[in-house]
């Protein structure tokens, strides 16, 4: 739900301000790749209506966000491709593919794709964090969006602890990826929490 909320916050922000300054389209592209790799099972496996609906919403809304930022004026006119230039193609995709291949529990296409998607998701925030560090001043809605985008993985960790004790659920790759992903946010969360505590604008060092 937090993940869904962060997407809705971002959509709302783009529609309201008609600007995507401070938003990394490259992060959304990473997520689009994550979703396409992971949700291939839409074609051969049914878990629940909720699960299927969320997958479809995540994929379609992420592609829509990319479309808005890259191609749909007036939002696309504000997209700064020089600032948002983190080369995830080299730095993230390659390593995620290699890690996906060597750490997959089983050498099947869906399993390798799933594993690579977990590793890629864990670092997908990097283009966004690096963009914000260049700009330093973070708009309120952008701060809420990034905070919810980080918080959802933290709540997964709580759920994993519950599932471990309640069902004996084990998911080593997911756990490790989740810890890396949440860890990358810790710094941002600190400055976000401070800005909320003091009621000031979020400014990164």
């Amino acid at each position: 739900m937090l993940h869904l909320m962060s997407i809705l916050l971002l959509l709302w922000k783009l529609k309201k301000s008609k600007s995507c300054v401070g938003i990394s389209c490259r992060m959304q592209e990473c997520y689009a790749i994550v979703f396409c790799l992971r949700y291939l099972d839409l074609f051969y496996q049914f878990i629940s209506v909720y699960n299927t609906a969320m997958k479809v919403v995540f994929i379609s809304s992420t592609f829509y966000l990319i479309f808005l930022m890259r191609f749909q004026p007036p939002v696309s006119a504000t997209y700064d491709r020089t600032a948002d230039s983190f080369p995830y193609e080299q730095y993230l995709l390659g390593p995620a593919a290699v890690l996906g291949f060597i750490s997959a529990e089983e050498w099947s296409i869906p399993e390798i794709f799933w594993t690579a998607s977990i590793w890629l998701e864990s670092v997908s925030i990097l283009p966004q964090l690096i963009l914000l560090q260049q700009l330093r001043e973070v708009e309120n809605l952008t701060a809420e969006f990034v905070a919810t985008m980080g918080a959802y993985r933290f709540f997964y960790i709580l759920n994993w602890i519950y599932r471990y004790f309640a069902e004996g659920y084990v998911n080593w790759i997911g756990w490790l990826g989740g810890i890396v992903q949440t860890g990358l946010y810790v710094d941002f969360f600190y400055y976000y929490a401070m800005s909320k505590w003091y009621g000031q604008k979020l400014v990164l060092p």
Binding site: N51, V170, N171
Partner: peptide, 10 residues
């Protein structure tokens, strides 16, 4: 238990 089979999380 085999938590890896049929990933049920998003």
């Amino acid at each position: 238990q085999d938590g890896q089979k049929g990933h049920d999380e998003l």
